[in-house]
Computed example of a mutant assay.
Amino acid sequence: MQTDDEIELKKLRWRCRRGMRELDQLFGRYLDRCWRQAPTPERAVFLQLLETEDDKLWRWSMGYEACPDAQQARLLEYIRTLPP
């Protein structure tokens, strides 16, 4: 039987699938390496990012456009620096 944490992680993994390989890899990497130990405020920012349209996320993540939200921008920059 799965725990609530395992179920939540599976749901988040599905939400991290964006249909763009770059975004899939970035968000999946964060989920695998950081989500479990992330503080609640950071998790909230990550969930906000998952609500954002893919084209905006891609432009922000690739550095083509600045993210207007400072917390989201900091988290995206951190996610971008995670080693592959």
Results as ranks from 00 to 15, higher is better:
Ala66Trp: 05
Asp5Met: 08
Arg59Leu: 11
Gln25Gly: 05
Glu51Trp: 03
Glu51Tyr: 07
Trp60Ala: 03
Glu6Tyr: 03
Leu57Pro: 04
Met62Ile: 12
Gly28Leu: 06
Phe27Cys: 05
Lys56Met: 13
Arg74Val: 11
Arg15Ser: 14
Ala44Ile: 01
Tyr30Glu: 01
Asp24Cys: 00
Met20Val: 15
Asp54His: 12
Lys10Leu: 14
Phe27Gly: 05
Trp58Ser: 14
Thr3Ala: 11
Asp5Gln: 08
Leu57Ala: 05
Ser61His: 10
Asp69Gln: 12
Ile79Lys: 06
Met62Tyr: 07
Gln72Lys: 09
Cys67Ala: 00
Arg74Pro: 02
Arg13Trp: 13
Pro83Gly: 07
Leu76Thr: 02
Leu26Met: 06
Asp4Val: 15
Trp14Lys: 13
Leu9Lys: 15
Arg36Gly: 08
Phe46Met: 10
Arg13Phe: 07
Glu6Met: 12
Arg13Gln: 14
Leu26Gln: 05
Gln2Lys: 15
Arg15Ala: 15
Arg15Tyr: 12
Thr52Tyr: 06
Met20Leu: 13
Gln48Val: 11
Tyr78Cys: 04
Ala44Arg: 09
Glu42Phe: 01
Gln25Trp: 03
Trp60Met: 03
Arg15Ile: 03
Leu75Tyr: 03
Leu50Ile: 09
Leu82Gly: 06
Leu31His: 06
Glu8Arg: 11
Asp69Ala: 11
Asp5Ile: 04
Phe46Val: 08
Gln48Cys: 12
Asp32Cys: 11
Pro68Gln: 09
Arg59Thr: 05
Ala73Val: 05
Thr40Gln: 15
Arg17Leu: 15
Pro39Ala: 09
Asp32Trp: 09
Gln72Glu: 08
Leu76Ala: 07
Glu51Gln: 13
Trp35Phe: 06
Tyr30Gly: 08
Arg33Ala: 07
Trp14Asp: 15
Ala73Asp: 11
Leu57Thr: 04
Asp4Phe: 02
Gly19Glu: 02
Gly19Asn: 07
Pro83Ala: 01
Leu31Asn: 01
Gln72Asn: 01
Glu53Val: 07
Glu6Leu: 06
Leu75Thr: 02
Trp58Ala: 13
Pro39Ser: 10
Arg29Cys: 13
Ala66Phe: 07
Arg59Asp: 07
Arg17Glu: 11
Leu31Ala: 10
Glu65Arg: 08
Thr52Val: 08
Trp60Val: 06
Leu76Gln: 01
Thr40Trp: 06
Arg18Phe: 04
Cys16Gln: 09
Glu53Asp: 08
Arg18Asn: 01
Met62Arg: 12
Gln48Tyr: 10
Asp24Pro: 09
Thr3Glu: 08
Asp5Ser: 10
Arg33Met: 10
